[in-house]
Design a protein around this nucleic acid. Structure first.
Lengths: 108, 108
DNA sequence: CTCGAGTATTGATGTGTGTCAACATAGACG
DNA sequence: CGTCTATGTTGACACACATCAATACTCGAG
């Protein structure tokens, strides 16, 4: 659950296998259309957070499937989880996204 | 072979399914430890390009496997291919990487 | 305590993907 | 033309993963 990143931009110097192995799962978490939309839905939601019920409504997928994708994003360190009453609210860890972006976009 | 990107940052407004479906394959291409290293090896190589023989030496994988990964990166629009004599040289399309980075890191 | 609503977990299934061995292609060089 | 080197393609296989139905868990509300 520790968060993300580790390295200077991709284009700066060659990644070691260890670095690559560490980063890949993070990118894998984002590399899915459903999870991309989940991320952007949460980020664009008011208060930067949304409950599962809000999110599920945007898809034609079963509740367990949505729950699964949220778990993946959470375990990758991209979404924060907070339970309030019956509801679970997810919010984006911007630092995590920023780290990934810096890793990839060293050219700017 | 058209290149990449399409949208404002993830965190700006919710992605449509179409946008997400279009972007996901790109991220999938990067979301592999071998391909991450290939990208960074090419980028960090002198002249921003490298031939397959150079790259293969950095891995303990078969030549067809390296060739396969390079194909994936090329078809995603992340690597440029140019054949000179017997060798094939790959170079990084920085604009593509930059686009992806901007998509993800809207928070900066 | 019981019930129901919101989420998570489990097990099963089909599809995708990384890898290799074997083979095919392309070009340099004799 | 043959041969050797560099690279790509094909087919096969094991494993990972997205999805769902069924089930379990967690809490307010009554």
């Amino acid at each position: 659950m520790e968060t993300v990143a580790c390295c200077s931009p991709l284009t700066a110097s060659p990644l070691t296998s260890e670095q690559a192995e560490r980063i890949a799962p993070l990118l894998k978490a984002i590399a899915d259309p459903v999870r991309l939309r989940l991320l952007s839905l949460v980020a664009a939601h008011e208060g930067q957070e949304a409950c599962v019920c809000d999110l599920q409504a945007a898809f034609e997928l079963s509740q367990p499937t949505i729950s699964h994708h949220l778990k993946v994003l959470h375990e990758a360190g991209l979404l924060e989880r907070s339970k309030r009453a019956t509801w679970v609210y997810y919010s984006v860890r911007q630092e995590a996204l920023a780290d990934v972006a810096e890793l990839i976009g060293g050219s700017r």
